[in-house]
């Protein structure tokens, strides 16, 4: 451990005495990093989507005989909630740019709540579905895709809680420094877009 601590210290040291630009640039890299990461993450979903599409296209009958119709109403409402939460979280971003930390807390709280409702709705849907994970290929892909997406929603919730926790300290975020907020917002938009594709593929197509 010794070595790493030393290095961290001297980084700061040099950054302060030397070219100050080194430090300022950093937040930019992080947002860029998140963006690149989300591109990679979307390839994961892309792979699963393409698998689903292929399964579907080569099948003689889809969904396989005996699969009950999917209920559209509840998931539809659920989707609307998730999609609108993307607009809500953007409010937090606008707020922080005006140094309105209370606004950040509110909007993040609301978004987190909407996300939680989405998850509960999904749980309710799972509980009432008439097919199980192993019933047929459609059922398996349905659960894996929605489950995997749900996991991402859950991670998003955790991230929001973390931001809220940090925002207890009114100094933590400011109009200059709010990487956490922007990153979570971007992530949340990503989760939303994935859901839209997923909803179209699984429920509407």
């Amino acid at each position: 451990m010794q070595g790493s601590i030393d290095t961290a210290q001297s980084t700061i040291n040099i950054a302060q005495e030397g070219a100050a630009s080194h430090h300022e640039e950093h937040p930019d890299h992080r947002m860029f990093g998140i963006l690149v990461f989300l591109c990679a993450e979307s390839m994961l979903f892309m792979g699963l989507f393409i698998a689903y599409i292929t399964f579907r296209l080569v099948a003689v009958e889809w969904p396989p005989a005996g699969t009950p119709e999917l209920e559209i109403l509840l998931p539809g409402i659920n989707s609307l909630i998730l999609i609108s939460s993307s607009f809500v979280i953007h409010k937090a971003d606008t707020a922080v740019k005006k140094n309105d930390i209370a606004g950040v807390r509110t909007w993040f709280g609301v978004t987190a709540l909407m996300g939680a409702i989405f998850l509960l709705g999904q749980g309710y849907e799972y509980a009432n579905l008439e097919f199980g994970l192993r019933d047929n290929l459609f059922a398996s892909t349905f659960y894996v895709l929605t489950g995997f997406h749900g996991m991402h929603v859950f991670v998003g919730l955790l991230l929001m809680v973390a931001v809220l926790w940090r925002a207890r300290n009114p100094e933590h975020y400011s109009s200059e420094s709010h990487f956490g907020i922007e990153a979570v917002e971007l992530y949340w938009h990503f989760v939303d877009v994935i859901w839209i594709i997923l909803f179209i593929l699984l429920y509407l197509w």
Partner: peptide
């Protein structure tokens, strides 16, 4: 085998 795979492909 359930008729998921297209038999004549």
């Amino acid at each position: 085998v359930p008729a998921i795979l297209v038999a004549d492909a």
